[in-house]
Amino acid sequence: MLGVSHATSGAALGLAVAGLAPQAVGMVATVGTVLTFAGVTAGAALLPDLDHPSSTATRRFSWASWLAARAVRPFSALLFRLTRGPRDTGRGTHRGLTHTLAGALLLGGGTAAASARWGTPVTVGVLFVCLALAIKGLDGLVPGPPSLVIAAGLTWAAEEKLPGGTAGAAGWLGIAVGLGMLVHSLGDAITESGAPIFWPVSIRGRRWFPVGSPRPLRFRAGGRVEMLVVAPLLTALTLGLAVWVVPGVADLVTSVREHLGAGG
Rank of each mutant, 00 (worst) to 15 (best):
K161N: 07
A71Y: 03
S255L: 11
L105K: 05
A242R: 00
L241N: 04
G223D: 09
S193D: 15
A170N: 11
L233C: 13
A12M: 04
F37H: 05
R84I: 06
Q23N: 09
F198I: 07
L162F: 15
F61P: 02
D139I: 04
G108S: 14
D139Y: 08
G85D: 07
D251Q: 11
I190E: 12
R84W: 05
G153A: 06
G212C: 07
R70P: 00
A44E: 03
L2C: 05
T93H: 10
I150Q: 06
H94Q: 08
L148N: 10
K161H: 10
V230L: 11
T93E: 15
G168S: 03
A250Q: 09
T120Q: 14
L20R: 01
L252F: 14
T8Q: 04
W63D: 12
G180I: 10
L148I: 07
V34F: 00
T8E: 04
T254Y: 09
H52I: 14
A116V: 08
L82T: 04
R60T: 14
G109M: 07
G39S: 02
L20I: 09
G164H: 09
R224C: 08
S62L: 15
A64T: 15
R84H: 12
G140W: 08
T89H: 11
T111F: 02
G212H: 05
D251A: 15
